[in-house]
C-alpha cells in the first residue's frame, strides 16, 4: 500500500513541478528562464549520469566526452547546413551512444576507483582529439554555430532565437528524455541493475550477466548525455573541447551528490541547487569555487542521501508512520 501511495504522491508532485516549469517563463525574468534552461540541460546530464552512480554503483569520470560528442555532432551538422532538428537530435544521440558502447565495453569490467580512472582516461582521449583536430573540431576554439534551424511541427514553423522559445524546446526535450529514463529505471532492467550495485555476485548467481547489464546502462547513460550535449550546443550556439574535459565531467557528479544519488529526481534538484547557489554567491564574491568547496564539505559529510534525498526520506518516514 505504501508503495502505491508514494507513487500517487510522486505523481502529483511531478505534475506540479512540470506545470510550474511550463508556466515559469510567464512570471520569472528572462535571465532566469535562461538559467532554468541550463539547469534542465545539466539536470538531464546529471540524471543520466546517476543511472550509473545511483543505480549501477559506477562512478564515471568521462561523461563530458559523451556530452561533448553530442554537442560537436550538432555543431558540425548545423555548420554543414542540416536543417532538420530531429535528425540532429538523432545523430547526436547515436554518436554519443556508439562511443559509450565502445567505452563501456572496455570499462565496465572494472569497479570503484579503477572504473573512475579508466573513464577519465577515455574521456580525456576524446578531449585530446577535439582539442587537436583543428580542421574538423576547430581545435581549442571549438565550433561556433551561426544559424539555428526552425522546427516544423504540426504545421507550425517554430524558431528558437528567443530565450523563451529555446526554453520550451529544452523543456519539452528534457521532459521526454526524463520520462524515458524513468521508464528505464523502473523496468525490470532497472531493478536488476540496482541489484548489481547491492551485490554483484548474487546477480551473477541467479543468472544475470553483470557485464552486459552494465554495458547497456553505460550506453543508455551515454546516449542521454549526448542528447543533453545536443541541447547545450543549440542553447549556447557552440561546441568546445571544454565540454569533454574531466573537470566538466565533475559537474554531474557534484550535482548528483548534492541532490542525492538515491532518488531518480535527486540529481535534477542537485543541478537546480548548484546553479541557484552559484548565482547567489557570485553576487557577493568572486571566490565562487571557495564557497562551492565550503558547501560541498557538509553536503558530503552530513547529507549522505543528498539534500533532496534527505528531505524525501524525512517525508517518507512521516508517511509510513
Amino acid at each position: 500500500m505504501i508503495v502505491l501511495k508514494i507513487k500517487y504522491h510522486t505523481l502529483i508532485l511531478t505534475g506540479i513541478l512540470v506545470t510550474l516549469l511550463f508556466l515559469s517563463p510567464l512570471v520569472i525574468p528572462v535571465y532566469w528562464v535562461i538559467l532554468l534552461s541550463e539547469i534542465l540541460i545539466m539536470g538531464l546530464m546529471a540524471v543520466s549520469f546517476n543511472l550509473l552512480l545511483g543505480y549501477a554503483g559506477l562512478l564515471s569520470f568521462g561523461q563530458g566526452a559523451f556530452f561533448g560528442l553530442g554537442a560537436y555532432t550538432a555543431a558540425l551538422m548545423l555548420q554543414a547546413g542540416y536543417e532538420n532538428l530531429f535528425l540532429i537530435f538523432l545523430a547526436g544521440i547515436l554518436v554519443a551512444m556508439l562511443a559509450a558502447l565502445i567505452v563501456g565495453f572496455f570499462s565496465v569490467r572494472l569497479d570503484e576507483i579503477f572504473f573512475a580512472m579508466i573513464t577519465l582516461a577515455f574521456g580525456m582521449m576524446f578531449f585530446s582529439i577535439a582539442h587537436n583536430w583543428r580542421d574538423v573540431t576547430g581545435g581549442s576554439d571549438g565550433l561556433p554555430v551561426f544559424n539555428l534551424p526552425n522546427l516544423q511541427l504540426f504545421g507550425l514553423d517554430l524558431t528558437f532565437y528567443s530565450p523563451i522559445s529555446m526554453y520550451y524546446l529544452i523543456f519539452t526535450t528534457v521532459l521526454i528524455a526524463l520520462f524515458l529514463l524513468w521508464l528505464v529505471v523502473h523496468s525490470p532492467f532497472g531493478l536488476i541493475l540496482k541489484a548489481t550495485r547491492e551485490n554483484k555476485q548474487r546477480v551473477s548467481f541467479v543468472g544475470g550477466n553483470v557485464r552486459k547489464l552494465r554495458i547497456v546502462a553505460f550506453t543508455i547513460s551515454g546516449a542521454f548525455t549526448g542528447l543533453a550535449g545536443v541541447l547545450f550546443c543549440l542553447f549556447n550556439n557552440m561546441a568546445t573541447p571544454e565540454f569533454m574535459h574531466w573537470s566538466f565531467s565533475t559537474k554531474p557528479i557534484i550535482m548528483a551528490i548534492i541532490g542525492g544519488t538515491g532518488s531518480f529526481f535527486g540529481p535534477l534538484f542537485g543541478a537546480g541547487i548548484f546553479f541557484v547557489l552559484e548565482q547567489i554567491i557570485i553576487r557577493y564574491t568572486e571566490n565562487w569555487m571557495f564557497f562551492l568547496g565550503i558547501i560541498l564539505v557538509p553536503v558530503v559529510l552530513f547529507f549522505p542521501q543528498g539534500v533532496f534525498g534527505t528531505l524525501q526520506n524525512r517525508f517518507f518516514k512521516q508517511r509510513s508512520k
Binding site: 535571465y31 535562461i34 530565450p163 547545450f232 550556439n237 557552440m238 568546445t240 571544454e242 557570485i282 565562487w288
Partner: peptide
C-alpha cells in the same frame, strides 16, 4: 566573470543583456 570558459562567458553576457 567569464571564468575563461565559453559557456560561462555567454551566460555572463546574457545576464548583462537580459
Amino acid at each position: 566573470d567569464s571564468t575563461g570558459k565559453a559557456d560561462v562567458a555567454l551566460r555572463a553576457i546574457r545576464k548583462h543583456v537580459y
